[in-house]
């Protein structure tokens, strides 16, 4: 028998660590998804640069969507900070051992890359902008050379991978939280981000099938808010490509999840206890129901049926993937906080 009592009673620490609520899962979800979108966009941009598929729907417009979603994620991050007025301190230093410092700088660069990538065909999406500010149009045109596109593509892919892995490393660097403390978390979040990105773009393809965008400064800006992507219609086959990619990403994600659990249950008492939080503990319903079944297995099944023309294409699998992607962050952030290095029962 081991009976442990503590007089410590700090808010958000006792009886169990709970420093991160909804904001960090939201931030990690958007971060991962944007990372995935950067990678997808990068690959498409390479094809554009090579002259293949120059009209690719998601190649050069995805960054614009990513750029806007990035703001949402960053807002969530800012909301989480408890000493907000000092947020600038992140950019006064670079701390090589801190994943969060890496992440802050990666985010800043990714912001720039997304912005530059978004500028490439900004006229297609937001004609009002290039019309009102011709310099934007000139900049946009200047970027669209094969060599510059290639550079942007590599930057997108590189920093996309970096950003995607970072959202996992941020957590996995913490030895104190056995559930997080696994090298698999980085790739897991990267592939989850990729699947979410494919799903997000898929939804965009479905929702914005080439409607004309309003014109003018005010009307255009308004339109940009509800219809961020341009009027260009997706090419035939785009959807199938996205769905195939998504099935692949989800499959990898499932394998990585299994490896994560396997790694935990075959390690020490703290890790086993951590795994149990997901497998049979407080977060088991969310883990099995929202992440594994509704977020991975079901969308894989539905999308395979879609590809086999058994059922029509809908946004349902994509929505499930997005919900599952968010659930993955939410569950891991919360359950991870509940996991701890345990005092050994014998001495």
């Amino acid at each position: 028998m081991l009976e442990i009592t503590s007089t410590r009673h700090n808010p958000f620490v006792d009886p169990q660590l709970h420093v991160w609520g909804w904001e960090i899962p939201v931030y990690l979800f958007f971060g991962g998804m944007i990372a995935g979108m950067m990678i997808l966009a990068g690959i498409a941009m390479l094809r554009v640069a090579r002259g293949e598929d120059p009209e690719s729907f998601f190649s050069v417009q995805t960054p614009l969507l990513g750029f806007m979603l990035m703001n949402v994620g960053m807002l969530a991050l800012l909301l989480d900070l408890s000493h907000k007025l000092y947020v600038w301190a992140v950019y006064l230093t670079f701390e090589p051992l801190s994943p969060m410092s890496w992440g802050s700088w990666v985010l800043l660069v990714a912001y720039g890359i997304l912005m530059a990538s978004a500028l490439v065909r900004i006229g297609d999406s937001w004609p009002w902008l290039t019309r009102t500010f011709p310099v934007v149009g000139r900049l946009s045109a200047a970027l669209e050379t094969p060599s510059r596109l290639r550079l942007l593509a590599f930057a997108n892919i590189g920093f996309g991978i970096g950003l995607g892995i970072y959202t996992g490393i941020l957590l996995s660097a913490m030895v104190a939280r056995p559930l997080w403390n696994s090298a698999i978390l980085g790739p897991l979040f990267l592939f989850s981000g990729l699947s979410a990105a494919a799903a997000m773009v898929h939804i965009a393809v479905r929702i914005f099938p080439g409607r004309p965008a309003p014109q003018g400064l005010v009307g255009g800006a308004f339109a940009a808010m509800w219809q961020p992507l341009g009027a260009r219609a997706p090419r035939a086959g785009t959807e199938n490509a996205l769905v195939r990619a998504d099935v692949g990403f989800l499959g990898v994600e499932l394998v990585l999840l299994a490896l994560l659990l396997l790694g935990l249950v075959t390690a020490g008492a703290s890790q086993i206890a951590a795994a149990q939080i997901l497998i049979s503990g407080a977060y088991a319903p969310a883990f099995w129901g929202a992440i594994v079944f509704a977020g991975i297995v079901l969308p894989i099944a539905l999308q395979l049926l879609e590809l086999g023309h058994r059922i029509p294409h809908t946004v349902v699998p994509a929505l499930l993937v997005l919900a599952g992607g968010f659930a993955l962050r939410w569950v891991l952030v919360n359950a991870g906080q509940a996991s701890q290095v345990l005092q050994s029962a014998s001495r």
Binding site: V19, H83, K84, A89, L92, A176
Partner: peptide, 11 residues
């Protein structure tokens, strides 16, 4: 210099 990210609490 602290931004209140709370990573240290979790770490």
């Amino acid at each position: 210099r602290c931004i209140g990210c709370k990573a240290c609490l979790a770490a």
